[in-house]
Nucleic acid binder design. Structure first.
Length: 423
RNA sequence: GCGGGUAUGGUAUAGUGGUUAUUACACUCGGUUGUGGCCCGGGAGAGCUGGGUUCAAUUCCCAGUACUCGCCCCA
């Protein structure tokens, strides 16, 4: 027997209502906020992600699904959404259009990780990106977008963590001073294995290290904000002001640095208050150097990715009521050979009139057919075939909810099926 | 990459070193001489793979595999 690949999941019919619920809200809100849908290919040249996400990041060093295709190209399945959108923006010269450009996407994401609760190898992200403007208003807009979407979906036990990691200049200075702080302290002799690499490749991440010993040195470490330029501070203040005006509460978390290299200035994360392991529902921020890094003109950008499976889990765990449309359905069944063709014929007529209908499958007793109808939410069963009284032109129509049954003529049945079209 | 847990019909579960391996749901047949839900009765269907211990292993041990949970990291 085959089973789905480790870390991948089927989205079964019984779960689709949650996905529909999510997509409806997300797409509707995107359009209200002026975002346009963009779809990019599932795979890209590996270099795009190396240069976009950063060579030293965990995502690139140990989590990509990469392969060499038959043309000997180095290919990687998309491990996040932003790099592809930026590539499309550059490739299609969208920087020549009026700015900013606002995009949303809904897509699969692939990361080779150990699966566990809230973590898959293929998961889905809904994300938005705003390209072509450095206005801090836009940072506020995407954060408010994410927050608003989640609360529209019914989630309200959430935390918003916010930080600024400065522009490229700020960061260069800050990293220099971080390095000198760390290498001069005892930490240098006691640091964990991960940080041994981080000190050179991804210094900021040391602040986010979960190792207890490494954490001991965080408090004394230099503070980003002391290295921030006036414009960085001004930018951050405006983002905070936007959130205040939106009445969204946030926590400044100075060790929030994010695991992708392209971020500048604003970074944020929305987490579930539930005290569980994978509780980050949304992550994002500003990335002013990325487009240039990918070979485009210097262009600022800001955006986020939202983990759809995690959000849907929250919705399910929160017992949020999702309105399901229940359409009445008809099941046609025949009880003798002669009526077999009739059952097919009337089923086709019903469907042509936009009525949800099916026919019973063969080999089932009438009792089993009725049970099937009951278990599958049919409201009406139409029984075609021999009548004990010998009247060949009537059909039995059974209403499952009331249990009532009546005999009508085939003409009446036709009238009934056609009536639906007038509505 | 590292660590923990689990593996029994389709699903969910119980139990046992030796007899017919438990129960529920689903399926199927019947009670109702073709009519669902509730009830009652019948039927079919199961111990991951490989090795070890033993007279005997589904049970104990080891390995593999899968799933699952946690760490790292992320959504």
């Amino acid at each position: 027997m085959f089973s789905s690949i480790r870390g991948t999941k089927d989205i079964l019919p019984k779960d689709q209502k949650f996905w529909d619920y999510f997509k409806n809200e997300a797409f509707k809100q995107s359009s209200i906020y002026g975002f346009e849908r963009i779809d990019t290919p599932t795979f890209e040249m590996t270099d795009l992600f190396l240069r976009g996400i950063g060579i030293g990041t965990d995502i690139v060093t140990k989590e990509t699904y990469s392969f060499i295709d038959r043309g000997e190209n180095n290919i990687t399945l998309r491990p996040e959404g932003t790099a592809s959108v930026c590539r499309a923006y550059i490739q299609n010269a969208m920087y020549t259009e009026s700015q900013p450009k606002k995009f949303y996407y809904f897509t699969s994401i692939f990361r080779y990780e150990r699966p566990q609760s809230g973590r898959l190898r293929e998961h889905h992200q809904f994300g938005i990106e705003t390209l072509g403007s450095n206005d801090p208003f836009l940072d506020g807009e995407i954060i408010q977008f994410a927050w608003n979407l989640l609360s529209k979906l019914g989630l309200n036990k959430l935390n918003l963590n916010l930080n600024t990691i400065g522009d490229q200049n700020d960061r260069a200075n800050y990293i220099k001073s971080l390095k000198s702080y760390y290498t001069k302290s005892d930490w240098d002799n006691t640091k964990c294995k991960d940080c041994e690499n981080r000190i050179d490749t991804n210094t900021l991440r040391i602040l986010d290290c979960k190792n207890k010993n490494c954490q001991n040195y965080i408090n004394e470490a230099p503070n980003m904000i002391d290295y921030a330029s006036d414009s960085t501070i001004n930018h951050f203040e405006k983002v905070k002001n936007y959130l205040d005006l939106s009445k969204i509460k946030y926590t400044i978390n100075k060790s929030l640095v994010r695991g992708l290299d392209y971020y500048t200035n604003t970074v944020f994360e929305i987490t579930s208050k539930e005290n569980k392991s994978q509780n980050a529902l949304v992550g994002g921020g500003r990335y002013n150097g990325l487009i240039e890094q990918l070979g485009g003109p210097s262009t600022p950008g800001t955006g986020f990715g939202m983990g759809v499976e995690r959000v849907i889990n929250e919705i399910i765990e929160s017992d949020i009521n999702i309105n399901e449309k229940i359409n009445s359905k008809i099941l046609f069944t025949s009880i003798d050979e002669n009526s077999y063709d009739k059952k097919i014929k009337y089923n086709l007529i019903a469907r042509n009139n936009n009525i949800n209908s099916e026919i019973s499958t063969e080999g089932k007793s009438l009792k089993a057919t009725m049970r099937y109808a009951n278990n599958n939410d049919f409201s009406i069963v139409i029984i075609l075939g021999h009548e004990p009284q010998g009247n060949n032109n009537t059909v039995s129509i059974k209403y499952l909810e009331s249990g009532k049954q009546e005999n009508i003529s085939e003409n009446e049945l036709l009238t009934m099926l056609n009536k639906n079209n007038d509505e």
